[in-house]
Nucleic acid binder design. Structure first.
Lengths: 215, 215
DNA sequence: TAGATTGTTAATCGATTAACAATC
DNA sequence: TAGATTGTTAATCGATTAACAATC
């Protein structure tokens, strides 16, 4: 268990997938699995799966495999899915509202406690249990509440400025949906969801396929 | 220009970023740039940028650099942003509606022509210029209209089945927002936006930082 | 025990970086 | 011309895969 070494981001991005497939195995009533079986499900090689898991410890049993529930719990613990997280969303437009209403976060205990916007038409509305507040109240709010994660769903023109304000108020984890790369100090982690970049690469591959077809 | 070699996905995923920063340079009124300047903006090494671009051709001028507008156009052409694309969205819930209303696709000519859902409360509503239709009309619709890209925003339980139906009707490019890996034939390209996986890795890094802080 | 599968080391592969000749 | 910066080859680095001893 070398918890102190830096784990490659590629490994971290595979963990949620293992976690998801282990959940499916549980649902199917299976309590034992192997790197070979996980390989078939995920498409990653069995060797890679064993390498990945052994970054965090030996969760398997030689000659036997892995206990599904145990391995799932271990991955949950590694990712931190065994804890509660309070989230705020900045920008209550299309994307902000969609995230607020998104039910796909059930795996862990994520709670959207508030949204912030500057549009008076939106302020005062509520999404699920979260109220849309005036962006001017953001700092005051952050001084009182203990927020773990901030989601940026503003237009890109203000995203950098909003991010800086968040960091000044103590936020250290940002989930960024604005199509812009935020310049942030090292102690802030930014996870980007760049929808346009995703769509552009899909477009590239779509055209590649059409090219091949017409050859 | 070795258009026929397979370009690494890592390269393709950087292209939209180059494209975006070149747009910013244009806005700033600059018409000349260099791999060094792009390196400072994007955070990728100058060497990598030159390598990436030279997968597609020599767009620069030795001793001078790159013409901003020309390079931007070339990347647009490589990605296919110089063409029009018709999109449909399957599932008109939170995410589906957000995508339909998303204005961040202005770079290229993407048009959402219809949404599909099975919820009678949603059917008949319209998002921007697109109508929400009954999912039962999907096949008929695809037989008549020429659709380039389908976006899956359904619950994960039906995503695989929906994807198969789309492929049967000729769809070859899928933008998948359902938290599930679609099993698809090779001639279909799937681009995944797995929001929960993204949030989970953010959670991991958030906890890592807290661990460091308390050491 | 024999068979199976992990944990882990070594080999391979691919992607990134460095270096530099070409040349504007 | 001299300085600058590309295009491209070679070197390095890191991640993936293969192999196999450990062991259940």
């Amino acid at each position: 268990m070398n918890n102190n070494d830096k784990i490659s981001p590629a490994v971290i991005r595979r963990l949620p997938k293992y976690y998801r497939y282990l959940g499916e195995l549980t649902k199917m009533g299976l309590n034992k699995t192997s790197s070979r079986e996980l390989s078939e499900m995920t498409g990653f090689s069995a060797s890679q799966i064993r390498q990945d898991l052994n970054n965090f410890g030996g969760f398997g049993q030689q000659g036997f495999g892995y206990d599904v529930e145990n391995l799932r719990n271990e991955i949950a613990r590694i990712l931190g899915l065994d804890k509660k997280y309070k989230i705020i969303i900045i920008g209550a437009g299309n994307i902000g509202q969609a995230i607020a209403n998104y039910t796909g976060f059930y795996e862990a205990d994520y709670e959207v406690v508030a949204l912030f916007d500057k549009n008076p038409k939106l302020i005062g509305m509520s999404m699920r249990n979260a109220l849309i507040k005036d962006i001017d109240e953001l700092e005051e709010f952050l001084n009182v509440e203990n927020i773990d994660i901030a989601v940026i769903c503003t237009p890109k023109s203000v995203s950098q400025q909003v991010a800086e304000q968040l960091v000044q108020c103590g936020i250290r984890a940002i989930w960024n949906f604005a199509p812009k790369d935020l310049k942030m100090p090292d102690y802030v982690h930014v996870e980007n969801v760049h929808l346009n970049e995703s769509l552009f690469s899909l477009t590239y591959y779509y055209n590649q396929m059409n090219k091949k077809k017409s050859e």
